[in-house]
């Protein structure tokens, strides 16, 4: 039992059901739409103390708003999940990527930083990320979210194909 819940990877439907329930639950308990990426604006405001006009808007009026707590909770939840499953406390973390290639550490760091830069910039221009658009938006049958999600997926496939043929030489990963 412990093994099935805390150690083995859950079947897709268990995770799907539990994630899907978040959408109505957040509306019922907090009248709020599920979303993560806007919270990065709060974090930028906290860290940079920036005077960017975008961060002075109503959305970020409460600098230490609920989004920051949601983000902190997600890190904590995964931390506890990782401890219970017996993962090492610290790992490089992208095993198949780092095992197949033999880059120096800073090259991996730069690669993931650039990936993150695309995610951060792209999410803001797109108006949301996987949770806000793909899960919350499509669950509410918003056409804009369906369009955005298709583009997310198409370019994810292109990036993975590129990565596979150019960086990994067509090898399996």
């Amino acid at each position: 039992m412990f093994q099935a819940i805390f150690v083995n990877t859950w079947p897709w439907w268990v995770g799907g059901v539990l994630i899907g329930l978040l959408v109505p639950a957040l509306y019922f308990f907090q009248n709020t739409a599920l979303g993560v990426s806007t919270g990065y604006g709060n974090l930028v405001k906290i860290i940079s103390r920036s005077s960017l006009p975008w961060l002075q808007g109503e959305k970020f009026a409460d600098t230490w708003g609920w989004r920051v707590f949601f983000i902190a909770g997600m890190i904590l939840g995964a931390f506890v999940a990782g401890r219970l499953s017996g993962r090492p406390l610290i790992s490089r973390g992208m095993p198949l990527f780092t095992e197949v290639l033999n880059w120096p550490f800073f090259a991996y760091a730069l690669y993931f930083f650039i990936g993150g830069l695309f995610l951060g910039l792209g999410a803001r221009f797109a108006g949301g990320c996987t949770s806000g658009h793909s899960i919350h938006g499509i669950a509410n049958l918003h056409k804009s979210s369906i369009i955005i999600t298709i583009i997310f997926l198409v370019f994810g496939v292109i990036a993975a194909a590129f990565l596979r043929t150019v960086l990994l030489g067509g090898g399996g990963m």
Binding site: Y40, G77, F79, L119, G122, T130, F155
Partner: peptide, 26 residues
């Protein structure tokens, strides 16, 4: 923006939510 996001998703193997889980996992 969505296209840029998709490239980032495929490159980094994470989205703004799952990267937080990756950090929590160490």
């Amino acid at each position: 923006g969505a296209a840029i996001f998709g490239i980032g998703w495929g490159m980094a193997g994470a989205c703004p939510g799952t990267v937080l889980a990756q950090i929590g996992e160490g």
